[in-house]
Design a protein around this nucleic acid. Structure first.
Length: 616
DNA sequence: TCGCCGGTCT
């Protein structure tokens, strides 16, 4: 009888000897084949596969191998969900060496700022010192990165600085850059500058970029400009940092101008630049500009990374024009999910924010759910904020409150502020008063809280308590910041305050306001004075409101901005209800698109409606 | 094994 044919299984087994034996034959332990096969940014799944191979190879307790596994965790694109895993890996090493420890600190440093993990890095460093595990120059950049994450570790960072000096690493450029970044991050740009000035020959382009970023964060744009002009060499990051400096300092047009210069000079535009410029477009509400950048990204076939996609989602969410593209952000999100990109927690802020602005309650619920359940992303305050805003604007105040109850962290003042805004809008006086008083207690010098609380009372026409809140505010030494509106025309910035008569064309402006008033009255407008918090007569209130700064700016815009072009106004405070209504009507009656960026969001007034869907 | 920039809730 002939022997039975070899089954495929047996054939395979013949081809592949047990992996451990194969690998032992071809590689030494130091070469760590399973780990060297990992891609540069491995997913947790890929890391686990490599780990399984290590076990099969009998390397599951090798200090070197486990150290490399930790390095892979640190480089993983989603370190936060794998933190438990990193801890477990570290726990497998009897006596961790400096390499393993450094990479574990890096894992901790890379987790979300709100987590306890960055703080834990300092504790862990302390254990290293006490356990006589040596530290090296690699330890400190990671440790400082962790310190930069949370304000709770500011003093820890200063202690780390002392250790850097004591242990002789103060000359290391990487360590110095970490310190400059750390001081900038905790708003001590002066200390960062000391580091920067101290050893001029221990600086590289990163040091310059870091200090420019520090001044940018501090809104000291002139210093940024000076440093940018004098730095010995610039890379793409220098350019995008300077662009960001302009954007954060409110000099948005200048930022976009520098971007143009960068492109003209042939500096390679990188991911950060696209993100900066998209952010500038978003903040300016320049939908068309943002779309132009989007098409440029497509034209040069720039890789659609998660970061770029997120910036696009953010831009579309913020610029959302009424019918045109309010759901573009969500469509984009769906599309890149289909392409298999892995969203980050920031992506979800953009997505949830888009849902909130578009009033899409069910989509918001669905995305929030998939974020936590499918992607394992722990919600942060920003996500909660979007959800609360979403519920509140849809009138689901009870659900908003229930949601707050179920949060894993206590609400921050911003979130309470969202709820207070909802109380004002929906006329929930009792709840509004409770929250308002709580907020004033939390942040007594924040003028916005008093204004909102007074607004709650004003809505109920309780002028007595409106006056009491105003008194309380002044007795605390807090005053309502003066409102102003800006408009750009003829290459100049024109600034208006309420009732302003300083402008050279003031007479014409007030005549235009009269004309506006007449035409709106013909269209059926009647003023809503509930936003005026002074205890004055109704007639006087109408008068005060009529001269709000944005009305002067819009009137001026109607005079000088060519027909067919939108009127763009930037205002520091939030738009009042009546100015909002008036702007809507002007957009219809005068057939003019008006774009007002107020203290909290954009309002695109077009054909009688507003992109904020009347909730802000 | 490293650092700098960029996207986030009223």
């Amino acid at each position: 009888m002939p022997p039975p044919p070899t089954s495929p299984r047996r054939g395979l087994r013949a081809l592949y000897p047990p992996p451990a034996a194969l690998f032992r034959r071809h590689f030494s332990v130091a070469q760590l084949p399973p780990l060297s096969l990992l891609p540069p940014c491995p997913s947790l799944h890929q890391i686990r596969q490599a780990h399984a191979l290590l076990v099969a190879l009998g390397l599951s307790s090798s200090r070197a191998a486990l150290g490399h596994l930790l390095a892979a965790c640190a480089a993983s694109p989603s370190p936060s969900p794998s933190l438990a895993y990193s801890r477990a890996v570290l726990g497998q090493i009897d006596v961790p060496n400096v390499f393993a420890c450094n990479n574990f600190i890096r894992c901790l440093a890379r987790s979300a700022a709100g987590d306890a993990a960055p703080g834990e890095a300092l504790t862990f460093y302390g254990r290293m010192r006490r356990g006589s595990i040596p530290t090296n120059n690699y330890t400190f950049p990671f440790l400082l990165q962790a310190c930069s994450k949370g304000s709770a570790v500011v003093y820890g960072g200063a202690q780390v600085h002392a250790h850097v000096v004591k242990l002789g690493h103060a000359g290391d450029v990487f360590v110095r850059n970490g310190l400059v970044h750390f001081y900038c991050e905790c708003r001590c740009v002066g200390d960062a500058r000391k580091m920067f000035d101290e050893l001029p020959d221990r600086r590289d382009v990163v040091t310059w970029n870091a200090i420019i970023a520090g001044y940018a964060r501090d809104e000291q744009v002139e210093v940024c400009e000076e440093l940018f002009a004098t730095m010995p060499e610039r890379d793409a990051i220098s350019w995008s940092t300077m662009i960001m400096g302009y954007v954060q300092g409110g000099l948005l047009e200048k930022g976009l101008g520098l971007f143009r210069e960068m492109v003209e000079r042939g500096v390679a535009v990188n991911e950060a630049t696209y993100v900066s410029v998209l952010s500038a477009s978003a903040q300016l509400g320049l939908l068309e500009h943002g779309q132009f950048i989007h098409s440029a990204i497509k034209a040069v076939k720039f890789p659609m990374t998660i970061t770029v996609a997120t910036a696009l989602v953010d831009m579309y969410a913020k610029c959302g024009c009424i019918a045109l593209s309010k759901q573009e952000a969500l469509q984009l999100f769906e599309r890149f999910m289909e392409e298999g990109l892995c969203p980050t927690s920031v992506t979800f802020v953009g997505v949830l924010n888009a849902c909130s602005r578009a009033g899409l309650v069910n989509d918001g619920r669905r995305h929030f759910d998939s974020m936590t359940r499918v992607h394992g992303i722990q919600p942060e305050m920003e996500h909660y904020g979007c959800m609360v805003d979403l519920f509140a604007r849809s009138g689901l105040v009870a659900e908003a409150l229930e949601f707050v109850e179920g949060m894993r962290v206590p609400p921050d003042p911003v979130l309470w502020g969202t709820l207070l805004g909802a109380c004002k809008t929906h006329g929930l006086v009792d709840l509004g008063v409770t929250i308002g008083n709580k907020l004033i207690e939390l942040e007594p010098s924040h003028d916005g809280h008093y204004v909102l609380l007074a607004g709650v009372y004003a809505k109920a026409r309780n002028w007595h308590n409106v006056a009491k809140v105003r008194q309380l505010m002044s007795s605390r030494g807090t005053s309502k910041s003066a409102g102003w509106s800006l408009i750009e025309a003829g290459g100049r910035v024109h600034k208006f305050t309420a009732g302003d008569r300083e402008h050279e064309r003031s007479t014409e402006i007030y005549q235009t306001l009269e004309t506006i008033g007449q035409r709106l009255a013909e269209a059926g407008y009647s003023p809503d004075v509930s936003c005026v918090l002074h205890d004055i007569g109704e007639e006087e209130k109408v008068h005060v409101m009529k001269e709000h700064s944005e009305r002067l700016a819009i009137a001026f815009g109607l005079m000088v901005i060519e027909a067919g072009h939108p009127i763009r106004v930037v205002k520091n405070l939030r738009v009042c209800g009546d100015c909002h209504e008036v702007s809507k009507m002007i957009s219809k009656v005068f057939e003019r698109e008006i774009i007002v960026r107020d203290g909290s969001r954009f309002h695109h007034f077009k054909e009688g409606s507003c992109s904020c869907l009347d909730y802000w």
